[in-house]
Simulated scan of single mutants.
Amino acid sequence: MSTETTLSMDDRLIGAPAEYLTPAERPTLAAAQEWCRTLATTHYENFHVATWFLPKRIRPYFESIYAFSRVSDDLGDEVADTAVATRLLTSWRAMLDECYDQPERSRHPVFVALQQTTSETQAPKQLFADLIHAFQMDQTVTRYESLEQLVGYSHYSANPVGRLVLWVSGYRDEERAMLSDKVCTALQLINFWQDVVEDWERDRRYLPADTMARFGVTDATIAGKQFTPEYRAMMVYLVDYARTMLAEGAAISGTVDRELAVTLQLFSKGGFAAIDGIVAQGYDVLAKRPSVSKATKAKLLAGALAGKFLGLFSGGRQ
């Protein structure tokens, strides 16, 4: 990344991945924004594609939000020592407070870029704090007992991102925010259903215990990658649960301007495509991780492009 990451003596992120260390000197806003843009475009290609459909003036907002979320996640997930990860996340939360309360002291490129986002949009600090809270939860909670608990976790881990997207796009009402919550929670659940084996290998289980018990699935079933009729029945139920929630939330695209609608539809359709991937392999997520084919991704992109150009020729509004 373009911003130098020379470690200062008082750096609070000692123990973090080297690319996330705070530079010795505060970067310019342009350099900080470039740092966030590089992180976004090199770590998650779908984010880069989706933001292309947004008005150019608000793309830096999205990139700073993504960078904040990405670093927060990696401080929790990419640091093997739980105690170190917990300390880093606590420091990151203090740096968030500093960004809002003493912005002149911020030196990390994420918070230098985020300052423009928060000052120009008045984005609530609590939404960013909720994301950090989710990653702090990951350090101590590795099993979930019910779907309700998973939905509660998603309140912190996924929903703030959708609400921030709406907020910086000028939509502040709770009705749209609740639709966004459904989309974001559904996408989080779908990701869990895809990553059962990978999560298990990291000593995490996001399949709810009560649902497992209802269908006669045990931890041994997951550990042994035993795709039984009971496991299939459970996955059918869980996938249908997420599909219904996603379908309900997807209605949000009809309530926003066309440019934002194209981006929101891209994420919703991506979620449905991921579900289709699970179904296509007979719900057997234990044999291999379901994925969205390149052909499907191309089709989604083509549809989004059509929506983008339609918006341009119709004045950009639905």
Rank of each mutant, 00 (worst) to 15 (best):
residue 310 L to D: 14
residue 205 R to T: 14
residue 106 S to N: 11
residue 37 R to H: 14
residue 192 F to L: 01
residue 225 K to P: 01
residue 150 L to K: 00
residue 86 T to H: 09
residue 298 A to H: 09
residue 50 A to M: 12
residue 5 T to S: 12
residue 310 L to K: 14
residue 147 L to W: 01
residue 159 N to W: 00
residue 200 W to F: 15
residue 133 H to W: 09
residue 106 S to T: 15
residue 91 S to A: 15
residue 98 E to Q: 15
residue 140 T to C: 01
residue 200 W to I: 01
residue 155 H to K: 07
residue 260 L to V: 09
residue 45 E to D: 13
residue 100 Y to W: 13
residue 275 I to G: 04
residue 183 V to N: 01
residue 201 E to G: 15
residue 258 R to L: 10
residue 172 R to D: 08
residue 13 L to D: 06
residue 177 A to P: 00
residue 54 L to T: 03
residue 92 W to K: 05
residue 9 M to C: 06
residue 80 A to D: 15
residue 51 T to F: 08
residue 247 A to N: 11
residue 97 D to N: 13
residue 104 E to W: 08
residue 189 L to P: 00
residue 147 L to R: 07
residue 197 V to Y: 02
residue 303 G to N: 08
residue 283 Y to P: 08
residue 238 L to P: 03
residue 11 D to P: 05
residue 139 Q to F: 08
residue 74 D to P: 08
residue 145 E to H: 12
residue 171 Y to R: 12
residue 256 V to M: 03
residue 239 V to A: 12
residue 147 L to V: 02
residue 145 E to C: 02
residue 293 S to D: 04
residue 166 L to R: 04
residue 40 A to N: 03
residue 301 L to V: 13
residue 136 Q to M: 15
residue 20 Y to C: 06
residue 169 S to G: 07
residue 94 A to Q: 14
residue 228 T to W: 05
residue 54 L to Q: 07
residue 26 R to F: 09
residue 228 T to R: 07
residue 50 A to Q: 02
residue 135 F to L: 12
residue 299 K to G: 09
residue 47 F to S: 06
residue 110 V to R: 09
residue 220 A to M: 10
residue 21 L to S: 09
residue 208 P to R: 04
residue 111 F to I: 13
residue 287 A to M: 08
residue 175 E to W: 02
residue 233 A to L: 12
residue 105 R to A: 15
residue 12 R to T: 10
residue 92 W to E: 06
residue 210 D to I: 12
residue 36 C to R: 04
residue 34 E to F: 04
residue 141 V to A: 01
residue 258 R to K: 12
residue 65 I to F: 04
residue 65 I to S: 02
residue 271 G to R: 08
residue 141 V to R: 13
residue 180 S to V: 03
residue 166 L to W: 06
residue 192 F to I: 02
residue 81 D to G: 09
residue 257 D to I: 02
residue 262 V to S: 03
residue 234 M to Q: 10
residue 159 N to S: 12
residue 200 W to G: 01
residue 317 R to V: 14
residue 178 M to H: 11
residue 45 E to V: 07
residue 133 H to M: 11
residue 258 R to Q: 13
residue 272 F to Y: 15
residue 142 T to L: 05
residue 65 I to L: 14
residue 73 D to Y: 09
